[in-house]
Amino acid sequence: MLHALANPTRFLKIARPLTPILLWLGVALFAVGAWGGLMRTPPDYLQGETVRIMYIHVPTAWLGMGGWSGIAISSIVFLVWRHPLASVAARAIAVPGAVFAALCLVTGSIWGRPTWGTWWQWDGRLTSMLLLFFVYLAYIALARADHDRGGDGRIPAIFGIAGTVLLPIIRYSVTWWNTLHQGQSIGLTGSTIDSAILWPLFWTLAGASLFFAGVVLMRMRALVAAQRVEARLRRLAV
């Protein structure tokens, strides 16, 4: 399958119809979740209505982190197999990933004020997530500089792999250290969130993920098109 997508034409044949499906389906699924989370679910026994921020904050956190995983995987594929679309994928994920990481921090801050009583604290979870956001910015700058200098993308790829170390730190920060942020509420074995409150989260998570994929696809298409223009101009210049 990887080799089938290596050809940009083949990739575009799939990407073109897929893009609007991902975007609109994503928006629709998210809308269902938001409707449920704002209108249908009960408030939390302790924090009341502010618990509804969960339906936004959790997806942005997962996608902020998941986006970096995508960059890491693409970087490995690029370094090992030299797949031409791999570095395009990594660069396409960078900005959406950074945006979602920033949204995670902002929605978390908004959630923290009425619940914890503070907009920000330097605890393990918040600090490591902020670090991930900075690493995203560094990656964006690095990838752009590498591309402008005619680099082959190897340096950003190595950076993309190295940054992965932040992901388990973020995930386990609430387990390893005393933190202000509470512990894991969703895991492979179950959830500590009552089902009456939990269900819209599946919808907003699914919707946000599809939307994210649609945005990445648009950015990949833009990069592929730019590559083709550059190649054509180079040939014409000869």
Binding site: W116, L180, D194
Partner: peptide, 8 residues
Amino acid sequence: KHDEKYMP
């Protein structure tokens, strides 16, 4: 500080 349990 609140824990990870949410319920109505």
